[in-house]
Amino acid sequence: MKTLRWGLIDLLVVVYALVPVLWIVSLSLKTPATLTDGKFIPQEWTLEHYRAIFSTDMFLRALVNSIGIALIATAIAVVLGMLAAYAIARLSFPGKRVLVGLSLLIAMFPQISLISPLFDIERQLGLFDTWAGLIIPYVTFALPLAIYTLSAFFRQIPWELEKAAQMDGATQAQAFRRVIVPLAAPGVFTTAILVFIFAWNDFLFAISLTSTERSRTVPATLSFFTGASQFEDPTGAISAAAVVITIPVVLFVLFFQRRIVAGLTSGAVKG
């Protein structure tokens, strides 16, 4: 009885979460004629939209931009976040509270209000419409998130492990690299996933700070899918592209999820 009730609740949640996704998948597989028939299961199946989006350079180019920019931004944010979070979790230094407060402030700041100044700044600096022009704001806005998640993980690691490493002859850097980082790995991967998804899904910066295929990412490119003529409906193509860009995120999560093993630190100390 209890299993049944939980099963029903689980099903409800899964259906609620998956219906929009299935809807997009369904739209991407419909022929242009049946796109607006209102049926959830396509009457006529086609892969034409997928063929169409991969036939032009535009989408492929955007995909490369998206993957490159998101990966680089993730790597930078996680490395910087790790160093900052370690300091926050382990050391007491002047201005620690101010630093934590400021990083929280950045996370809360409405991003839309920064678009115009950023646009001007990046034009002046020649960063507009470059990879770096997107990577820098992504790192900035992902860092508070990274620092918060990582410092929570660092706090869980028994401090004595680090002392033990120092006694065993490790420098502080060696203790960090060989003992602390492996133990914080679940936290690092969790943070990496969160930051990657943030950068991957961003539309606001992508549409405002790019102007050509040189650096335009997929979410921004989708908005330029207009169809071959103004009479052609781009819904199918947009849906197909939306399905395609979901795949890397799913792969990314699946790949790293296996590394996020709970209880990795058990057995370090008594208990």
Partner: peptide, 20 residues
């Protein structure tokens, strides 16, 4: 001198074994 340069070994109350 840093702990590593003093060449002493320590056993902790919690043992502090490296769980990984």
């Amino acid at each position: 001198k840093a702990p590593k340069d003093r060449d002493m070994a320590m056993v902790f109350q919690s043992y502090a074994l490296y769980p990984n």
